[in-house]
Simulated assay, not measured.
Amino acid sequence: MAAEREGNRERHPVGATAAGRPRGGRLDQPRALRRRLLPEWDPDAFGRLSERIARFLGTGRFIVWMTVVIIVWVVWNIAAPRQLRFDEYPFIFLTLALSLQASYAAPLILLAQNRQDDRDRVNLEQDRKQNERSIADTEYLTREIAALRMGLGEVATRDWIRSELQDVIKELEERQNGHRTHAVFPADHPRGRDMDDR
């Protein structure tokens, strides 16, 4: 039985699949670089370039320059001598140039809008988190203020202490007035004086 297991191990080494070939590369080693047919580019740099172009395409300066180029193109190809004209009527080369410009401008504008949408989404998420923190802080402060009010409800205020002191002063004055009355008219309460002295 043990010999049979050893034979199986030799036929199927560790890391091999049922088909007999080893599983994918080792996970503890980096993969070998593959050659790509397409050129590599930095998407962030390309996105920044597309945003610059889209911003320029959306300005009045671009429209003015484009209008000037088209007018010069048309006037040159109508008024220049025949051997110097490079795009005679119906201006096929101009149409091709404008079509190419439009076909590149649309995706560049869309790419710039997508990047702006991503930035807006990130800003919106940050604003939402900031609002959540502000709400949590406000709730915490509200609870703290309520606890302070409850605690202050049990603390003696200046007005309460003043009223209590006034009551004590009145009571003392009444007692003093009562003692004076006893001293002036001792015959009224003959035994009261002896009881008080005890």
Rank of each mutant, 00 (worst) to 15 (best):
A2I: 10
R5A: 13
E6I: 12
G7K: 15
G7E: 14
T17V: 04
T17C: 08
A18V: 11
G20A: 02
G24C: 05
G25R: 08
G25E: 04
R26P: 00
R26L: 10
R26Y: 06
L27M: 06
D28N: 09
R31Y: 04
R31C: 13
A32C: 07
R34P: 04
R35H: 14
W41G: 06
D42H: 06
A45P: 01
L49N: 03
S50I: 04
E51C: 11
E51D: 07
R52G: 02
L57F: 03
T59I: 05
T59W: 06
G60C: 08
G60D: 09
F62T: 01
F62I: 03
V64W: 11
W65L: 15
W65H: 14
M66E: 06
M66K: 10
M66D: 10
I70T: 05
I70R: 02
I71F: 10
V72I: 13
W73V: 01
P81W: 02
R82C: 01
R82L: 08
L84V: 03
D87E: 00
D87K: 00
E88I: 07
E88F: 02
Y89M: 09
P90C: 05
F91K: 00
A102P: 03
A102K: 14
A105C: 05
A105P: 04
A106P: 01
A106T: 05
I109F: 00
L110A: 11
R115H: 06
R115K: 14
D118L: 14
D120T: 06
V122A: 10
L124M: 08
L124W: 07
E125M: 14
D127K: 15
N131S: 15
E132A: 14
S134G: 06
I135W: 04
D137C: 07
T138P: 00
Y140T: 12
T142S: 12
E144C: 13
E144M: 14
I145H: 03
I145L: 09
A147R: 15
L148N: 05
L152F: 13
G153E: 05
G153R: 13
E154G: 14
V155I: 09
D159F: 11
R162M: 03
S163L: 13
E164A: 06
V168A: 04
K170L: 12
L172P: 00
L172D: 00
R175S: 09
H179F: 15
T181V: 09
H182P: 00
A183P: 03
A187L: 09
P190Y: 02
R191E: 02
M195Y: 05
M195E: 05
D196E: 08
D196H: 08
